[in-house]
């Protein structure tokens, strides 16, 4: 773990009530790289993102974000850290009383003094980047699941964050949108050297874009580059990456393009 770690979790344990989610989690997410968190449902992937954002406090351990130990910060101080973080929630978390346009404009209106023209053009840019148009006046309730995800990603980009956390950006998307979002993430990572942490079930895109993978298995976590994990000597690790683990059956077409020759894509739950 060197200086270049943008986000670092040291010996973090988390439990809800008596239910332990994970214990002794050590992990680092290097500055300016794309990291992907893999793991089964309920393994605590979303919880890791929430811990990084300071939304839930771990029971023990330290969490470093941008050289700051956020476990010791007060709520007020956390708000300063969060201004540098864009987060896309698993369910979108859009404000359902505001239109798509107002949702995207919201953080900018809250924290900057930009004029309406500039805000409008920034909203349009972010929506275009996630491949949406003609949705500005819709309410979140009128969006499909995939559209909601993309609007949420657009909103996370509005404040030009240095850290981007994405919770399952690909689930429920069609193959073309997946490709598009994947390329978008890789592009903003390259152009602005944003640190990106993605929770995903989508193996092919993970293998294509991840520089670092954190695999959360029951009772253990394994980290490494995709290559290292593919060659890992633990069967469970290799199984996770190779075997029928793909979520949506309609992603099968996609998997053929996968650079690592996955096979047998079928629904695993």
């Amino acid at each position: 773990m060197g200086e270049c770690d943008h986000i670092r979790l040291e010996d973090v344990s988390m439990a809800f009530g008596r239910r332990e989610v994970f214990t002794g989690l050590n992990s680092c997410f290097p500055r300016g790289q794309i990291s992907v968190i893999l793991g089964g449902s309920g393994s605590g992937k979303s919880t890791v993102l929430k811990i990084i954002g300071g939304l839930v406090r771990p029971h023990s351990g330290q969490v470093w974000v941008d050289e700051e130990n956020i476990t010791q910060l007060k709520e007020r101080q956390l708000y300063q850290v969060r201004r540098r973080i864009g987060m896309m929630f698993q369910g979108g978390a859009l404000l359902d009383s505001l239109t798509v346009f107002e949702n995207l404009a919201f953080p900018v209106r809250e924290h900057t003094k930009l004029g309406e023209d500039e805000i409008a053009s920034r909203v349009r840019r972010c929506l275009e980047a996630v491949g949406l148009n003609d949705v500005e006046d819709l309410l979140p309730g009128q969006l499909s699941g995939g559209m909601t995800k993309r609007v949420a990603l657009g909103r996370a980009l509005m404040m030009e964050p240095v850290i981007l956390l994405c919770d399952e950006p690909f689930s429920g998307l069609d193959p073309i949108s997946i490709r598009r979002i994947e390329q978008l993430l890789m592009r903003i990572n390259e152009e602005f050297s944003i640190t990106i942490v993605v929770v995903s079930h989508h193996i092919p895109s993970t293998l294509r874009m991840a520089e670092q993978v954190l695999l959360m298995l029951p009772g253990a976590t394994v980290a490494g580059s995709p290559k290292e994990l593919l060659a890992h000597d633990d069967d469970r690790v290799r199984g996770f990456l190779h075997e029928d683990f793909g979520g949506d059956p309609d992603l099968q077409v996609e998997s053929i393009e996968g650079s690592h020759g996955e096979k047998n894509w079928s629904r695993s739950w």
Partner: peptide, 9 residues
């Protein structure tokens, strides 16, 4: 939580 992450109380 979404609001909190946008640094709005």
């Amino acid at each position: 939580d979404g609001l909190r992450m946008m640094a709005v109380d």
